[in-house]
């Protein structure tokens, strides 16, 4: 669906035309029907990549294809929907007028435009606001109308730049549900984000971009499979005196709430020894939770790595 090969982007900024490299040869692929999360800290080059794909900026090297056609072929945009980062719209237009303009740019017929606009505004929960000027829209509403306009042409590929940033939990859930709904319809979704919990929930595959380089790519499970159990958290009761003190010494930290104590152990070995001690001293284990690395840890690790 999306393929890039050695995509490079350099900017020259300021009076002295200082060279800034935004992308250092990005090669990646997004397959049909998947939800692909494009992760990376601010300034990693995510937006630049998306802008190149949408024809807003021209790459200084490499090539990219959308649905098998080179990005310079503007007819490919017929089957693509795009939501820019922090979108601004024509705030003097009403929601309905804006949807109509979007439809016109796809050369859609009036009846088709109206029906589709109605359906999409309903889907994003804005049918009540269709005659309201966009300047009166809240941030969440803006984001939703942005998604609605990106879907006006019933695209096969939906590209979203930071669709969840700046939204409250309810708004994020709505966007998440919309993305999953699109996936059910067989659409391909490519979105950039730095909100990681959402990624783990909805993405089939992710790519991590750091300082213009793709550091990791694969399913969330694949990326995390190599990671070890980081810590084990054990909650127990009924242990006292010397035994409790030695348990506390074995743990990297303990919290006592009433008769229950929760202790965190650095590795599984220590946790096993602690478990034996609890049983031997006649205590009771209430819960035992191993903590594996999360995508966030992996992300932090990749970002933290020096080149």
């Amino acid at each position: 669906m999306i393929r890039t090969e050695g995509l490079k982007m350099e900017f020259h900024v300021g009076f002295f035309r200082k060279r800034v490299v935004a992308l250092k040869g990005l090669t990646m692929e997004v397959k049909r029907g998947e939800v692909f999360g494009f992760l990376g800290p601010n300034g990693a080059g995510k937006t630049t990549t998306l802008k190149i794909l949408m024809g807003l900026v021209y790459p200084t090297g490499g090539a990219a294809w959308l649905m098998g056609r080179p990005i310079s072929d503007s007819s490919v945009k017929r089957n693509i929907g795009f939501l820019p980062e922090q979108p601004y719209f024509y705030d003097y237009l009403t929601a309905a007028e804006f949807m109509d303009l979007s439809g016109r740019l796809f050369g859609m017929r009036r009846k088709e435009r109206e029906a589709r606009a109605e359906e999409l505004l309903d889907m994003v929960g804005l049918s009540g606001a269709k005659n309201l000027q966009l300047r009166k829209f809240s941030k969440g509403m803006q984001q939703r109308i942005g998604i609605a306009q990106a879907l006006i042409n019933d695209p096969e590929l939906v590209v979203l730049d930071e669709p969840m940033s700046g939204l409250d939990p309810v708004g994020r859930k709505q966007v998440r549900d919309i993305i999953l709904g699109l996936k059910d319809k067989g659409k391909t979704i490519f979105f950039s984000t730095h909100i990681l919990p959402d990624v783990e929930v909805i993405c089939d595959r992710v790519g991590i971009l750091v300082r213009g380089e793709l550091r990791a790519m694969g399913t969330v499970d694949e990326l995390l499979s190599g990671t070890k159990v980081k810590s084990v958290e054990m909650t127990f009761a009924g242990v006292s005196g010397e035994n409790l003190s030695s348990l506390e010494r074995m743990a990297s930290g303990t919290v006592t709430r009433g008769s229950e104590t929760t202790a965190t152990f650095g590795d599984q070995e220590a946790a096993r020894a602690a478990k034996r001690l609890v049983f031997e001293s006649g205590g009771e284990i209430i819960s035992l939770i191993p903590h594996k690395s999360s995508l966030e840890d992996l992300f932090m690790e990749e970002v933290g790595k020096r080149k």
């Binding site: 949408m54 807003l56 945009k77 795009f82 601004y88 719209f89 024509y90 740019l105």
Partner: peptide
């Protein structure tokens, strides 16, 4: 205002 992103990303 970056409204141009919305337009140029469409088949125009």
């Amino acid at each position: 205002k970056k409204t141009i992103y919305i337009i140029i990303s469409k088949p125009i």
